[in-house]
């Protein structure tokens, strides 16, 4: 192993990791929002919107991100829609992650017993107040482990961004292998950086899963 070479390459990896993190955070935040809206639309059974949301979820969950990105980056310009690399990456990530987040929120919403809703409404709360104060807090806490798993999943999926010409970790590693044949060094740094990003996130997810588990108690089992 050429340690000096690795040290010289560090700044490139740091920059690439930073890019990955930036796009991943934007994508994850937007996907959480989109997912929550989709889950609420479906649980409220809003006629046409529900169908559109279901169709979106199926499309998104049954196609690979890589193909979604090819379509966005190489296909859409032929229809006159030009998107920057970053834009493509974020849109692709939200298109993919939104459906996974929606499913996580949905199972959370379904876990809240109908009687909880009824008892809140029987106290004179409106449907909106019931949703905000009673249903959502419980639903979200049930969803947390699944949401956290989706966050990890989405970060891992960002590894394909090099196909839309983003200089992410994979891009840098592939470049170094191609240009200098420093395969071992490039791959070691690649794995190291991914672990650096992913291990803390997955430790956090495991901690959250143990922690947020109050919902479901307080009712007779």
């Amino acid at each position: 192993m050429d340690i000096e070479f690795m040290i010289n390459c560090l700044p490139m990896y740091v920059q690439a990791a930073w890019l990955t993190l930036r796009i991943a955070s934007a994508g994850i935040a937007l996907a959480l929002g989109a997912g929550l809206i989709c889950a609420l639309v479906r649980s409220a059974k809003i006629p046409v919107a529900s169908f559109i949301v279901s169709a979106y979820i199926e499309l998104s969950r049954n196609t690979p991100l890589l193909v979604q990105l090819f379509l966005l980056y190489f296909g859409l310009p032929k229809a006159g829609v030009y998107l920057s690399s970053q834009m493509c990456a974020i849109i692709g990530l939200v298109f993919l992650g939104g459906s996974y987040m929606a499913e996580a929120f949905r199972s959370g919403l379904e876990s809240v017993d109908k009687a909880q809703r009824e008892s809140a409404e029987s106290l004179g709360l409106t449907k909106f107040q019931t949703a905000i104060y009673v249903v959502l807090p419980q639903a979200i806490s049930v969803s947390v482990p699944a949401l956290a798993a989706n966050v990890i999943f989405m970060i891992k999926e960002t590894s394909v961004f090099s196909v839309v010409a983003l200089a992410d970790l994979m891009f840098v590693a592939k470049d170094l292998i191609g240009m200098y044949y420093k395969t071992n060094e490039a791959l070691t740094l690649l794995v190291g950086f991914y672990l650096l990003i992913l291990l803390p996130v997955s430790a956090l997810a495991a901690w959250l899963e143990r922690r947020v588990r109050y919902a479901g108690f307080g009712n007779p089992a």
Partner: peptide, 17 residues
């Protein structure tokens, strides 16, 4: 924990070397 693409790189480029 590692992206599948990283694993693919490890096998395809790494094992060779």
């Amino acid at each position: 924990v590692l992206p599948q693409l990283v694993l693919l790189f490890l096998a395809y480029f790494g094992l060779t070397r």
